[in-house]
Nucleic acid binder design. Structure first.
Lengths: 333, 333
DNA sequence: ACCACCCGTGTAATCGATTTCGTAGCCCCC
DNA sequence: GGGGGCTACGAAATCGATTACACGGGTGGT
């Protein structure tokens, strides 16, 4: 591949001039045309590695995602990729697979690659390496999940309004024994969703006792199914279940179907994260829709603000309740 | 961040020695310990950008995926990422969004970044830039989709056995009027699947006339739904439909449900790509399962072979028929 | 005891760009 | 006509690593 020296020789100028022409720095003279002609004839493209070394800017962003096969994160990654590209950045993706060790590993290689900034949707609470990122001065923005003790803005959705609305919805439909499937206590996201839901229900005089709070260490399908099974074995099973993740909701649905129970007749079901698939289930599931693509976009912008040294505030976008038929009563619209 | 010079000074040696120690080249002497100590004390990590410039190896692979939100490609990307990481490579992902122009754009920036190799699951038939990749000498491997006229090995699944089995399955269940939803004529993947299916059916004396071949320019949900709608409006509607992509199958299911038709009673449905979600639909869908993760792994290995100058043959892995209940008759197992 | 060799290490070139600094030429003005 | 200020450009330093080459000193062979 041709390099800048080849171009300079062919155009009969110095490499400095070529660089200046290409970066639009100073010259407007007729050498300009000669340089551009040489570039065209040789099919020259600047070597980004060399440029990055000199300018200390790689033009690449890193994204650590906790589970790429989870549709919510897929959409998030897609949105981030889209926005990054449209702003001239490439995206190096790392899949943590919900394993903190692998996440740390990945963060390290991304730092070694001198990415310009890092977006992390953190697995677990592994913050050791995250503090190191902050210390290294690499701009960092947390995505979807906060990590206590890490000094970086977080971009995520606020479920308060949606959960309040959901509590009202359930109350109006006469559901008196709600339950929730969450991540284990200690996970910031899970704790928050539980607290908000409980508070919202209380406003309608509905309790959410601990026996109807089911935690799954794996945030997966199997965990959701097991918790639902436990719920159904209670002396007084719940009449409505909120799954705080789409995979867990899938598992819960499978358990219901396996027992021959029907939604919404025997059990109301609500899912956190409105992935497109849920409009195709039977019945379509009422969902708490996070503004996924907006979150991705906002995260990129926040990160760019940090990269350019502008102030970057945390972003909190409201989630919405999307009522379908899985709690009974077709929506009015 | 500390650089190699800082380490050299602190250890009282030259930068060359530090480099040699770190790359395990020659010394085993006691300077080695001094160097390692200095590295630890300073928290030194080699700058990959500088290293890449010198060695002409970035340790990054590029992956162009035609649609990241399509679960099949998500799983493919996930598998590629996993394998690449475990072999010490990072992955720069580009989402072509089924737009050839965007794909070309992305390929160009990846080349500028001097990735060590490129995997492409090509959108459309846009091969202009792909030929340029080959010309540039960057190792290239095609994934899932062949591109005529591009001299690069392709890693993909072979549907022959599965489609043969499917034809037998449908014949045995008495389905006499099969139909297929495919990409428009001219798309290598679509053409091949149509031909194989038609041939396999013919062996059982079953015809696949053109009126039961529905093409959708968008390989999406809406296209699948529209084609299914057309099928149902035929004087003699089909009694079995093969959707050659999971999104199109979703659309087809929606149309059936909207018309109050039932699977498998009123219509048998088979989906290409066995994404996990389809085991949760009601009824679970019979599917042609491509060995997605194996494809991803094989693609990375083939690419590495090319990178290291070893011979790299095309890879063709067999797809399997997974019978569930969407054509009638529960599976025997 | 001398020579050849090898081992461990340092010096400096190199990768391909950007950027600082210096300079030649030109215009303008007093 | 000479000094000041531009403009357009080249020479060379620089980013942070790897590596070819040179060199000193110890070792072994004869």
């Amino acid at each position: 591949m041709a390099n800048i020296k080849d171009v300079a020789e062919r155009a009969g100028v110095s490499v400095a001039t070529v660089s200046r022409v290409l970066n639009g720095h100073s010259p407007v003279a007729e050498t300009r045309d000669r340089v551009l002609a040489a570039v065209r004839e040789l099919g020259y493209r600047p070597n980004n590695v060399a440029r990055a070394l000199r300018t200390a800017r790689t033009g690449a962003l890193g994204l650590i995602i906790s589970d790429l096969t989870n549709p919510f994160f897929t959409e998030l990654a897609d949105a981030v990729e889209d926005e990054a590209r449209s702003l001239g950045y490439s995206l190096v993706i790392g899949n943590a697979g919900e394993r903190p060790a692998q996440q740390d590993d990945y963060i390290r290689t991304l730092l070694d690659r001198r990415i310009d900034g890092l977006l992390v949707s953190s697995a677990g609470t592994g913050s050791a390496m995250l503090s190191e990122v902050v210390a290294s001065g690499t701009p960092l923005v947390l995505l979807d999940r906060t990590v206590p003790g890490v000094d970086a803005p977080c971009v995520r959705a606020d479920g308060r309004a949606a959960l309040t609305e959901l509590a009202a919805h359930l109350a109006a439909l006469g559901r008196r024994r709600p339950a929730i499937i969450v991540a284990p206590a200690g996970t910031p996201t899970g704790d928050e969703r539980l607290d908000l839901f409980r508070t919202a229900l209380a406003a309608h005089g509905i309790a959410l006792p601990d026996e109807r709070v089911g935690a799954t260490p794996d945030l997966q399908h199997t965990g959701g199914r097991r918790v639902m099974s436990d719920f159904l074995d209670l002396a007084e099973p719940p009449d409505a279940v909120l799954a705080t993740d789409n995979l867990m909701a899938l598992g819960a649905m499978d358990e219901l179907r396996a027992r021959g129970l029907r939604v919404p007749d025997d059990m109301a079901l609500v899912v956190y994260d409105d992935v497109p698939w849920f409009t195709h289930t039977d019945p379509p599931l009422t969902a708490i829709a996070q503004p996924t693509r907006e979150l991705g976009r906002a995260a990129v912008h926040t990160l760019l603000a940090r990269i350019e040294g502008r102030p970057a505030d945390p972003v909190l976008l409201p989630a919405r309740l999307v009522t379908r038929r899985s709690c009974g009563e077709p929506p009015i619209g």
